[in-house]
Design a protein around this nucleic acid. Structure first.
Lengths: 379, 379
DNA sequence: GAGCTTTCTGTAAACGTTTCCAGTTCGACG
DNA sequence: CGTCGAACTGGAAACGTTTACAGAAAGCTC
């Protein structure tokens, strides 16, 4: 298909069709030409298997038709559902999607923001896990439109889509307390991250609203992974004092399941991965879910249906956040042709969390609330 | 930071530093210049916050420094681990990663292959789920180097990295038979895909090697998802005749678990998602894993550790395949500068599957093989 | 068929780099 | 101090498009 001398360019087509390169370009972009010209150009292009060079087109047009999505870890199902949405909307408008896994490395996140200036990408959707002053500065001076998925200080002049994860965490904890659980442990991700801090705040305020206070022995801080969730639960039960007896730090706690059950009767986890790990650990200790210990997670990812029993989780609208973020970004791009975003008009949308109750928290041991339907969505 | 009149270019820097644009380019690329020139250029660049335009650089250099990875569905953890590897190797050599989710749509896969000609991407790693003549033609005429993850006809002039999934399926089925299972059902993905066909072939040959033959009532064909796996298992138990009694097509089989147990004592699933779905369905019918029914999957994805009990699975080396594919592609790019791949020298690497035995198949009901360690790797 | 408008075409410039080539500067050596 | 070679520099071309502009052709009206 390819003539000798490399891939065909607009110039090659022009020669073959006996017209100028301008006419070739116009025909190929449907900008009107005489019927005869159109026919000759299209025939030459088809014969030579011509494909326009997207790089040259980008340089000339000033837009790369690429978007970037930067997230922490592509292994987390939350991001998977965001990617799906973003990819789908982007593709519909002719944009390709560049993926960046930052591994929560601060320098990587900043590098992504700065690299917007290299014209590779027309816009960015980013899920920063921490917000530092450098982040804010980088966001302010970003060379192209940016949409942040996550909570930002309100004065930040950046489009964002957030979810009220404090309220989300409260929903879950209230649900556990209202179904008769008394000793609700909390397994959190890193406390110095935005999600970590918010989820802890929700946990605490939910307890306080019921007249309880946080027992530090019931709170664990670790990474957002399955393995970390399992380890945290083991540590919790090994070290937590039982509700009515003194702590037993020396004996093997696994040998005495009833003691465990007394120490904790529910675990709220800051995301589904942690919850799945916790469920594993409970199973391996011979504790029953939800009869002995109820488990609830957050994100309502596909993992909730991977776990047994199916996992109660707070839907933070990750797919929806992805969709909204993509729409915001595409709006911004079509609107002002991708000029630097006018700080005055930064938009913020908020997704309302919903609790999805499944079997991992129903059939409460004491309270009569067990008649809830497994898939019922509260609030 | 930005002077009026738009983003700084090499020309802006040249004016500020009082040198020519050629010198600016040389300094910025470390091609040697007088100390004084270097200092002035670097100072001007820093002051103006200059970032080179990657698009212009691509056009001039003929390489975009982008790679594309095309897979079926980003929701499948198998692809996630491939993406991780590819992204990491690509980044190490300065390449960005473009992601394409084809949803197993033939036209999309072909479009990706053809779009290599647009110079957006320097190379492609693709996981085609079916191989049609059009695929082969598109691979042959691809404008840039391509590496295929998956099995190809041996005459195809394309680098590829495959896994012997026939042998992998045999490993799992042999393991089930050798631990005393007699009625081994098979839940497969679409039979007209390469993975689907191979896994079925492995299942059949494993049975035949033990003097058994395939019972069509024990084989289900569906999609590669959790939900499909659950539905398939329910259908299997509802419709399969019990081993020793006549089939009971009318009564609700779930009400009679012993009948189910007689019908099937093991399920081999063509991937982990199907296996997880099957495990869900078994749990919801009150059947115990592995005491009543053993479950084994394929891919050894993160889902194996998400399931309870932990899932026996065949490791098809997805991370390794990703790594090898990335290395092959990068080799090809550095080697011949990314010219069309010389068909004569197509390389093929094969990853050997390993069976990872976990609790979902141990503790066999009849055989004394239960002393295997949970994490033991066979072969 | 002349004059007008409309439509179409080709030349050339522009997008921002890198790099070839020739010319200039510099240092060293005789 | 003059000469030679090496190191450096600037002008210009090239990468492949799109598009502004001016000029040519075609269609229309009278």
């Amino acid at each position: 298909m390819v003539t000798t001398g490399g891939t065909p360019t607009v110039e090659t087509i022009a020669e073959h069709a006996g017209v100028s390169i301008a006419s070739v370009s116009r025909v190929l972009n449907g900008h009107g030409a005489r019927a005869d010209t159109v026919r000759r150009v299209e025939r030459a292009a088809a014969e030579l298997g011509y494909v326009p060079n997207a790089v040259a087109r980008s340089l000339q047009g000033g837009r790369s038709m690429q978007l970037t999505f930067a997230m922490q870890d592509i292994g987390n199902p939350v991001y998977v559902s965001m990617v799906r949405q973003i990819q789908s909307l982007a593709k519909a408008q002719g944009y390709r999607l560049l993926l960046h896994s930052t591994d929560a490395v601060l320098a990587d996140e900043l590098a992504v923001l700065r690299s917007l200036a290299d014209r590779t990408s027309d816009g960015l959707i980013i899920c920063p896990i921490r917000i530092t002053p450098e982040h804010l500065e980088a966001l302010r001076t970003a060379a192209r439109p940016v949409v942040v998925i996550g909570s930002l200080p309100s004065e930040a002049p950046v489009d964002s889509v957030r979810t009220d994860s404090v309220a989300g965490a409260r929903l879950a904890v209230h649900h556990l307390l209202d179904t008769g659980r008394r000793r609700v442990a909390f397994i959190n991700g890193p406390a110095d991250t935005v999600p970590g801090a918010n989820r802890y705040a929700g946990y605490r305020s939910a307890l306080e609203e019921r007249g309880l206070s946080v027992d530090p022995a019931l709170v664990r801080t670790t990474e957002f992974t399955i393995e970390a969730g399992a380890a945290a639960l083991h540590a919790l039960l090994d070290e937590a004092p039982a509700a009515d007896t003194a702590a037993d730090h020396t004996a093997d706690a696994a040998a005495e399941p009833r003691l465990d059950a007394a120490a904790v009767d529910a675990v709220f986890c800051a995301n589904d991965q942690l919850a799945l790990g916790a469920a594993q650990a409970l199973h391996s200790r011979g504790l029953r879910i939800p009869e002995d210990v109820a488990v609830a997670g957050m994100d309502d990812s596909t993992l909730t249906r991977a776990s047994w029993p199916p996992l109660t989780s707070v839907d933070l609208g990750s797919a929806e956040r992805g969709r909204i973020a993509a729409r915001m970004l595409l709006d911004r791009l079509s609107q002002d042709g991708g000029d630097a975003p006018p700080p005055a008009s930064a938009r913020t949308e908020t997704v309302t969390p919903r609790l999805i109750v499944r079997a991992s928290t129903t059939a409460a041991p004491t309270a009569p609330a067990a008649e809830r339907l497994p898939e019922e969505a509260c609030r």
